[in-house]
Structures are given as C-alpha cells and as structure tokens.
Design a protein around this nucleic acid. Structure first.
Lengths: 192, 192
DNA sequence: GTCTATACGCGGATAGAC
DNA sequence: GTCTATCCGCGTATAGAC
C-alpha cells in the first residue's frame, strides 16, 4: 500500500480509538493492531505519539469544516443551519451515549494532561463558535451573535456529558427540543 | 501517624490529583510523593489503584451530600437552594477553568476506560439529580421535577466544559445569569 | 506502620534487515 | 515501506526488613 494511504488509515483508526478509549489510554499497539501493520512500521509514518495526535486534530478540523460547508449549502436560512448543528446530538446519539462528545472529551483530557496540543484541540470548539456566530449574525442577532454561539455550544456539551452518564434517549430528545425552542423564541431579528 | 489519618490523607491527595491530572495519568509515585510516604508504605493502605479510586468516589459522594445538607439548612425556599447549586460555577470558577468539573470529567474518563467504577462515578450525578428533583418538587413542579433537575445539571456541565476550553469569566457569569433567569421564569408553581 | 529493594509487564521509541 | 528485534523507563504490585 502506498505510504499516503497507510498514513491516512493510521490517522483514521487513531481518531476512532482516541475517541473511544481516550488519547492516553490508546497505545501504539492498539492502533497498529487495528491498522494491521507492525509497531515498527508505525514509526516510518509517525515518530511520536504527539505527531499522531496533531494529525488527528488536523483531520477532525477538516472533517468538521466540511460538514459546516455542507450545512451552509443545504440550509436556506441561518436558523436552519443552526438546527443542523443541534441535530448532531440526535444523529450521533448512539456514540455520544457511549463515548461522549469527541471534541469536549478530548479538550478535557488534554487540559488535564497539560498537553501542548490542548490549545489546538480547543480550536475545534472555536471553528464551531465562529461558524455559529456567523449564522446568528446573518439571522440579525449582530450584537449577541457570539453569546448565542457559546450558549448553543455549551448546551450541546452539557447534553452530551449527561447522555454519556445516563444513556437516556428521552433526555436527549427533550433537550434538543428545548434548545430549538430557545432558538425559535429569540427576540425577532431585523433581517430574515 | 495513625493509619486512619494516613489513609484519609492519601484519599484527599488522590482526590485532588485525579481531578487535576486525571485518574489514569496519576501514578502511585505522584500520590506518595505528595503524601510524603514511600511507595511501599502505600500498599499497606491500598492494595490496588482501583481501591483508591473507590475511596475517592466514596469521599466525593459524602462531601457532596454534606454540601447539599448545608444548602438544605441555609436556603429557605427551594429556589434559593437551587441557586446555591448553580452558584458552584462561580465559587469554583478558578478550578473549573483549569480542570473542568470534577464529576463530569471523571465520569467521561472512566466511561472511555471501560472502568468498572464508571457507574459508581455516575452516582455522583445521580445524588445531585435526586436532590435537585426534590427541590423542584417542593417548588411545586411535581410533574417536571426530574426534567428540570437534568436540565440544570446539563447546563452546568456544558458551562464547565466550555469554561475549561476558553477560560472566559464573562461567559460563565452570563450563563449563570441565564440559568437563574430560566429558573425564575418557570411557570408559576402551586405552592411556595 | 513505615521503610527499601525488587519483580514484572507495558508502552514509547530506535536500529537495522529485507 | 514493511518487517523483527530490542532498548529503556515508568507504573503497578510484591516481599520482607525494621
């Protein structure tokens, strides 16, 4: 297999394992086993574990940006696009119940490890924050766009954390409805 | 020093280190160093790391129950008591910005480790859930007491996670105000 | 109860053959 | 590019002296 493909594969597997088991708890052996290459070969592609982490964060960033671009195209109104974001909680509910939010749990873990990549991981939150802010601005909430963006992010994070603890679908559905109701009830905007 | 005191000390130090560095990332050596006992002596008090974890969870449970009892005594109205809970975000904001919520981050970590104590850690959420539910019931929100309890828990968790990522005091203050405004705006109850 | 010494496995990382 | 062999340090855990 060509190097680029193997590398891509390693990052993909590492992405999943870091999500499911945590960064520190995932060993080279775990990744190598699932990619079906030897541990030695591994080092041809990545010299340190931190390099893999960097690549995983990079991949997550580009994955999320692609999703947001898709929402941008598919959603006519900014409100629709924000609803797409909120709906991740439903479409990914199965994984969230098992492993929590991939972004929130990674940033939490790296913060505790005092890892140099912690701030890169926070960038994952930032790109959503900026994107949501733009949606709220376009919906006419110029002054409060950033506040609203953070509110949506925070609420989603909280739902993910408790969903992980209690595995309660009814709770997730209810909170998604609450958040969408909050969105619909925002003071009327000047433009539509 | 008497054994009970040393043991108590170990649990106290472990509690802090598990919070600040994470459970897995904290080694026996870390704890022993801070307690100022040898690693060998350690095993007189706890035979495995999991035993320490159990003791830490036990301590956290009893600590939280004592806090809630205190709130129960100090707060005249159930709404006041709920506000005490929400105010943790402000009084502990400094630590939350650095390490997140002690309960949320522990349950997330243990879930990923597939650790047998994961469900014990979730009990930490449950005792708050039950306590908050009782407050909402006493405030006359019989039918929705549990929903409201989970909503408050979820919102607090989300704020803690984002506070940890962005270290933004203004955000914390704003979201605490939002949550208290939500509390005050709940449909009027039958009893006061 | 507290210590030192030590066993042992695992995870990260390297060297070098093919 | 992929492999095997190997090093090394750390972390958990044990044995046994004081």
């Amino acid at each position: 297999m060509r190097a680029a493909l193997t590398r891509e594969n390693i990052v993909k597997v590492a992405d999943n394992l870091f999500y499911q088991q945590g960064f520190e708890h995932t060993s080279f052996a775990d990744i190598a086993k699932e990619v079906r290459i030897s541990r030695g070969n591994f080092y041809y592609h990545f010299r340190t574990k931190d390099e893999i982490l960097d690549a995983v964060i990079e991949k997550r960033l580009s994955d999320r940006m692609m999703i947001m671009e898709k929402w941008e195209i598919e959603g006519d109104l900014p409100q629709d696009r924000i609803r797409y974001f909120i709906s991740i909680l439903l479409t990914n509910s199965c994984k969230i119940k098992q492993y929590g939010c991939p972004i929130g749990t990674l940033t939490s873990e790296l913060a505790k490890l005092n890892h140099h990549a912690a701030k890169d991981a926070c960038e994952l939150f930032t790109i959503f924050r900026v994107w949501l802010r733009r949606q709220f601005e376009q919906a006419g909430h110029k002054a409060k766009a950033d506040e609203y963006a953070l509110h949506v992010l925070a609420h989603s994070q909280g739902v993910a954390t408790l969903a992980n603890a209690f595995h309660d679908d009814a709770f997730i559905n209810r909170e998604v409805e609450n958040l969408i109701a909050w969105l619909n009830d925002l003071p009327k905007s000047k433009v539509t």
